[in-house]
Design a protein around this nucleic acid. Structure first.
Lengths: 253, 253
DNA sequence: CGCTTACTTGAGTCTGGTCAAACGGGGTGG
DNA sequence: CCACCCCGTTTGACCAGACTCAAGTAAGCG
């Protein structure tokens, strides 16, 4: 299940002082004592292959993770196999907050690409709240932000048409990619298959394919070798009637 | 906008020591110092009529609320007026967590019935985290639980058929009603119109009506005078392939 | 070279949407 | 008291968006 990182075979452990996430402009800086605390809070790293299951529904998980690199997605299954993808997890996101606090996990998480994850022990969380109340607040903040994303997603699946949904999803993922990967990538490519998109939008694979071709015909996005490429972000946003991500600098870990 | 409570015209302010929520079996007890703190944290109460807007999208709100009595719903609008209801708020739920922490509200909240709400000042939240770290943890817990509910809702709208969605929604609301209103009500009645249900399920009003009649024909629920009545909760859950709410005692305020 | 995985495309069907009209109860003004 | 209106529910007829089944293509891999 766990595997060594192909991309960084020598450094198995990044010290928090050199955490690559902290340096991204989208995130707020730590104070020195917060940094110390987080360093002691970190338990290790997990490196996984693409396709690995990081969290399994109906299971207890003793850990929380912060994504250091790579993409994953959160999903739920119906008993007969229908799958709904709930959200995507990118560098800086916290895994296991969503329902891990409460008891059994109510969803699964699967890696879309090879990933490195920073591990924390769940049962030390109360120490964090006691010793670093501001970090506790940050965790609530992160949870609230996740809820915001879910809200927009639910609006999309419930009330947008197929082409609007697809436009929203692609624009949304593109915006998140740009937040973490520094800034403007010329043609952001998303590491998804059309099946993932279908299961996110609540559409069938076939109809998703046709919808994506319609987006391509309008010159908004196209399907390249490495997945979906964004051509006209503004156009996508306007099709979806979507305003974009808030620009606040956000906390993490 | 604010109105006096019809049901409790004399006591405009319930002291936290006599908070009706605390006595419900679904919620965990406070320690004495927590209770003291929360008492000082409370800023007042808000009493609203049915139909009142408690929180408005694209607006800043200086307050958080805990629902003392009544029902409300959280929703988002598309620019052209399409509405998606995201979740319902019942006694014990916190209003304003979802996105208020971050900046502008990204959704609105409207009262379904007359309500009493307990008000807190948002900018005193950091004091709470500093002085009562466990309450801080509880707030995160509450946010995580909300996210769980949204997850299930998204699964529903994305992957369940019309009749499954309706069955899920009714079963879900019934379960929440039973958690707070003590226990078994014989024929729980939900204070919704079919338009609310349609906007929750992502269906049209007409199709929602037909779907509800199909549920009635199967003897699972029916439409009474005061809204939807649940007849066979187990049947609804099995149609929806839904396992029910976790039974943990949960924190609040 | 055959196998698998992912994307495409066509044809026919069905679920759910739209438009339109009617019903029934509660409230209001004449 | 009655006529009228409004809101929410109900029903019918028709249409369209999305689903299923099925087959074909293209790229990557052992």
């Amino acid at each position: 299940m766990a595997a060594s990182t192909p991309t960084r075979p020598k450094t198995k452990q990044v010290p928090c002082t050199e955490c690559p996430i902290r340096q991204m402009p989208a995130f707020r800086a730590f104070k020195p004592d917060e940094l110390d605390f987080v360093s002691s809070f970190k338990r290790g790293e997990l490196h996984t292959d693409k396709g690995a299951t990081i969290v399994q529904e109906a299971t207890h998980s003793a850990h929380l993770f912060t994504v250091l690199s790579g993409w994953a997605f959160r999903y739920k299954l119906l008993r007969d196999g229908r799958r709904q993808i709930l959200n995507y997890l990118v560098p800086g996101d916290l895994i296991g907050l969503q329902s891990g606090l409460i008891g059994e996990m109510q969803h699964s998480v699967e890696a879309l690409t090879p990933m490195s994850l920073c591990m924390f022990e769940r049962n030390k969380l109360s120490t964090l709240y006691r010793k670093q109340p501001e970090l506790g607040f940050d965790i609530t903040w992160i949870a609230a932000r996740e809820e915001q994303m879910l809200d927009e997603n639910l609006l999309s699946v419930g009330r947008r048409s197929a082409i609007e949904r697809a436009a929203y999803l692609i624009a949304f993922l593109c915006a998140r990619l740009q937040q973490t990967s520094g800034s403007r990538v010329r043609r952001p490519a998303l590491p998804l298959t059309q099946q993932h998109i279908a299961d996110t939008l609540g559409l069938s694979l076939v109809h998703t394919n046709r919808t994506l071709r319609r987006l391509a015909a309008r010159g908004l996005a196209r399907w390249g070798e490495r997945g979906c490429e964004v051509i006209d972000l503004g156009g996508l946003m306007s099709v979806a009637q979507w305003e974009g991500l808030p620009e606040t600098r956000r906390p993490f870990i």
